Amino acid sequence: MTPEGIFGVAGQAAMLGWLILIFLPRRWPALLWLPRFIIPFGLSLLYSGLAMAHILTVDGGGFGSLAEVKTLLSNDWALLAGWVHYLAFDLFIGGWIAVQADKVGISRLIQAPILLATFMAGPLGLALFLAMRAGFVRGAPSEEAVMQGAAA
Rank of each mutant, 00 (worst) to 15 (best):
I20P: 01
D90G: 03
F41G: 11
P40I: 00
S142F: 04
P29E: 15
Q12G: 15
L16R: 10
I106Y: 03
A127C: 10
F37N: 08
Q111R: 11
L66A: 11
L126M: 09
L126Q: 02
G8M: 15
L109Y: 13
L124I: 15
A112D: 08
L50H: 06
E68I: 04
V58L: 06
L72D: 00
A51T: 08
F23T: 15
G42C: 04
G82M: 08
A101T: 05
G95L: 03
L91H: 01
S65T: 05
A152Y: 01
L56S: 15
A53E: 13
P40R: 00
G82I: 05
A98K: 05
L73E: 02
L31S: 11
D90T: 04
G5M: 14
A117R: 01
A67F: 09
D76M: 07
A117T: 09
L21Q: 02
L56P: 12
E68G: 05
G105A: 09
L31H: 07
G125L: 05
L87K: 02
A14E: 03
W83N: 06
L46W: 02
Q111F: 07
P3F: 06
G42P: 01
A53M: 13
A121V: 14
K70E: 11
V9R: 14
L124V: 14
K103I: 13
W83T: 08
H54D: 04
R36Y: 10
L16E: 06
A101G: 06
A140G: 14
L21I: 01
L87I: 09
L130W: 09
V58S: 02
R27L: 14
V58C: 07
K103R: 11
Y86A: 03
A14S: 07
A51H: 02
F119M: 13
E144R: 09
E4W: 07
W96L: 10
A117E: 04
D102C: 09
F23N: 15
I55L: 09
G11L: 10
R138S: 10
L130E: 11
A131F: 10
P123A: 09
G61V: 01
A121N: 12
P113Q: 09
S65H: 05
G11W: 07
W33C: 10
I55Q: 08
